[in-house]
Design a protein around this nucleic acid. Structure first.
Lengths: 248, 248
DNA sequence: CGCCTGCCTTGACCCAGATCAACCGACCCG
DNA sequence: CGGGTCGGTTGATCTGGGTCAAGGCAGGCG
């Protein structure tokens, strides 16, 4: 699978303009031209809501630029983020009528969309697409389960460090490699959104970020730009055991 | 889809002995005979581990009888359950070499298995199976995200009530309908396993169960048999807003 | 029978993180 | 330029749930 090699690399699929991983696995096939005709772009401003939970959602698509979140809210206002979407991430649920969660842009956002019905029909006639979507959904499921460990068992400091490693990994893959091991990136989330990600309050997020800064685990330029002098140190803080998975 | 109608009903697919939802959607096809030859059963005692995280896992399958859990553990022993498997639930990751989580039987367990390689090959030649697996994986993802809200934002009491509603719903579908609205079931988990599910300690689980009993939300016979006199009341305690989803 | 082990309960105390509140700086807009 | 809003920080205090500790009860076994 060509596009899996640098697993989190930005989409760059020759002259195929569709930043859609489900599709890109088949860039070399005839199906592409069908999708080429189907696709359209949508832009959103930071803070704008793409769809509300429960609303009919007549498209699927993927993030081209920017960051979006999936959130769930209780009647009394408690909210929990359940998904964090970076460029190349897929949005939508083939075979389901409605959106299950609020989808919100946290920065200016560009999505590449396909109307759901024709996309579903294409899926039925193109077995590789369903398989590709299955793999992507399994990835999302793994991410969700990793996140459950963070939510259920980690301390506030570990939670912050975990979030920073996730953003660093995603962001690093989109931009340049670390310069002399000094990884850096901009936080695409407000303190409040980070709190909703981690099941904390925004005050605790702020305090723990200050603490990590005080302890030299990270450096800050302004409120959003983070410099990580030692990524291994950050991972330790996150309580992650070093990756020992066996890939296919 | 024939087998989705009573969505959580025990598998009962005419004379097809394979309790495998991914397959059952195609009971009427030729593929069945292939699977019939491929399948084999495995039994485990309560407490036994089916596979360890990271181990090679050369089969996929589904739970026929009993309950199993997926858990994740940090080096220092903190553990978080990330999946709770009832009869008809699928286990395994087509296309992935290793198990991502510990799979453990919490009661005597019977699984219907297929060797992974031939199953994957069958998937490639049988598009409906990949699509069925995609739908099942989307269901799991929804469950995981619902659970994230529980872990991140609910109080201990709400967590316990949430778990009880989940078990009640799954169990009720496997056994008899509630008698006069008095739903009842046996807890398939120890207090410690419930704690690992909910990101709590076993003492807190015990205390909150006692509190729900004291307040008349549930009744107990012994330590494991739960009677729910009023399911709506239990759902309120769980903080669930009544389901307003729009199914396909 | 008595002992042990696994599972569960309850009490007393403590602390990480929530809550409440004051304040800062950047930005926008009239 | 002044006032308002938004996002963020920090301090003081409170509390839900963790921690530590002491039993209780049922089942298995010598």
């Amino acid at each position: 699978m060509l596009y899996d090699a640098p697993k989190l690399a930005p989409h760059d699929c020759g002259d195929c303009p569709i930043r859609h991983r489900a599709v890109c696995a088949r860039c070399d096939s005839d199906e592409l031209s069908v999708l080429e005709e189907m696709k359209y772009y949508r832009s959103f401003q930071a803070g704008q809501t793409v769809v509300w939970a429960g609303d009919r959602m007549d498209f699927v698509g993927s993030v081209v630029e920017g960051v979006a979140t999936l959130t769930q809210t209780m009647e009394d206002g408690r909210t929990q983020m359940v998904g964090l979407l970076f460029p190349s991430d897929f949005v939508g649920r083939p075979g389901r009528a409605g959106a299950a969660y609020n989808v919100t842009a946290t920065s200016d956002l560009v999505m590449c969309c396909f109307r759901k019905r024709p996309f579903e029909q294409m899926m039925e006639t193109t077995p590789h697409v369903a398989q590709r979507l299955l793999q992507m959904t399994l990835d999302e499921l793994d991410a969700a389960r990793e996140w459950m460990l963070v939510l259920g068992r980690k301390t506030a400091r570990e939670k912050i460090a975990s979030l920073l490693t996730i953003i660093a990994r995603r962001d690093a893959s989109l931009h340049l490699a670390p310069v002399e091991g000094r990884l850096q990136f901009d936080l695409p989330l407000t303190r409040e959104a980070m709190a909703d990600y981690l099941g904390l309050t925004l005050e605790t997020v702020s305090r723990q970020i200050s603490a990590l800064k005080r302890d030299g685990v990270i450096e800050l330029q302004g409120k959003r730009h983070v410099i990580v002098p030692d990524f291994d140190r950050l991972q330790e803080e996150a309580g992650d055991d070093s990756d020992g998975g066996l890939p296919e």
